[in-house]
């Protein structure tokens, strides 16, 4: 039981990171990036290959993986998402969703071409090792994953609250026109935001490659997880997606105890649908940014 809950939190930390990345683009730009899971998948592959080819520890290779995904994010914004920036409101969300669906096809099949359809796991030497605390196993890889997730969120929070760029992101999320009138270069803020979201997907992907496995087809599942969490947190909430991710991890763990392990996934989706229908502003819903 306790073991299950602890594992739920470990997994929830990854959900949280994946979801915060999606929430950034959604909350700030009104872009619903269905290809977020594919970005995560690429992050996972980067750390997998850096480990298998060069022997770089996945937690160290984050210093390559994060900028790499950041660059991919910049590129995607430039090439694709910038073109929906002119649209407003509903039309923008819907078109961004459609476009990202095209990206899903592209990225997924590029991954199959490059990496084959096989499942891969970053098998570090200390996999399986860990601490035993009051009979609860705490593997190093999972512990490290949670620590990295927490550090990432803290860093993002400080960035959004303290730095000028962070404040510009929050301001743009609230009212992009007022942001432009304050001299903020909104297209550039969008670019930065999307790239940050992609970088977060990269971190989440690294954690996934270490603690479970990556394959070209995992994208949709992770996008759905992130979507569930974003809806739980309320779509205006960015940092709030992290605790919501932990919550989803916990709920899944509990449901595999009380219902059945095979319905873990369903429970999350059902909650997602209920929240969507009954409380669209999310469980922790507030309309404020960050």
């Amino acid at each position: 039981m306790a073991q299950n809950i602890v594992y739920g939190l470990f997994v929830g930390g990854i959900y949280g990171i994946a979801a915060v990345g999606l929430a950034l683009a959604f909350g700030v730009m009104n872009v619903l990036n269905i290809a977020h899971g594919e970005l995560l998948m690429f992050g996972g592959y980067i750390s997998f290959w850096l480990f298998s080819l060069l022997g770089i520890d996945p937690f160290v290779s984050l210093i390559i993986c994060i900028p790499a995904l950041f660059l991919i994010g910049l590129l995607l914004d430039r090439l694709v998402y910038r073109h929906v920036a002119r649209l407003r409101g509903e039309a923008k969300i819907k078109n961004s969703l459609l476009i990202s669906f095209g990206l899903v096809l592209i990225l997924q099949n590029v991954a199959i071409r490059l990496f084959t359809a096989d499942e891969r796991t970053t098998q570090v030497s200390y996999i399986g090792q860990g601490i035993n605390l009051f009979g609860i196993a705490l593997p190093y890889t999972r512990l490290m994953g949670l620590v990295i997730a927490l550090v990432t969120i803290l860093a993002l929070h400080l960035f959004l609250q303290r730095t000028d760029s962070g404040k510009a992101i929050r301001a743009t999320a609230e009212d992009w026109e007022a942001a432009e009138l304050s001299g903020i270069n909104v297209p550039r803020v969008y670019m930065l935001t999307f790239a940050l979201g992609a970088a977060l997907a990269g971190i989440a992907g690294t954690l996934v490659s270490v603690t479970s496995s990556v394959a070209p087809s995992i994208g949709l599942d992770w996008t759905l997880k992130a979507l569930i969490v974003v809806v739980l947190a309320g779509t205006g909430s960015i940092i709030g997606a992290f605790p919501a991710g932990l919550l989803l991890g916990l709920v899944e763990a509990l449901s595999s105890i009380f219902i059945s392990a095979s319905y873990r996934e369903v429970v999350g989706l059902v909650i997602f649908l209920l929240v969507l229908l009954i409380r669209p502003q999310g469980l922790f819903g507030s309309r404020e940014a960050a």
């Binding site: 969703l97 979507l227 989706l269 969507l276």
Partner: peptide
């Protein structure tokens, strides 16, 4: 009751629930 993109992701969720079940 859901509009636009929310309708889209809501229906996606329903289909996935069925598929997994």
């Amino acid at each position: 009751r859901l509009r636009g993109a929310y309708f889209a992701i809501g229906t996606l969720g329903i289909a996935e629930v069925l598929r997994i079940t």
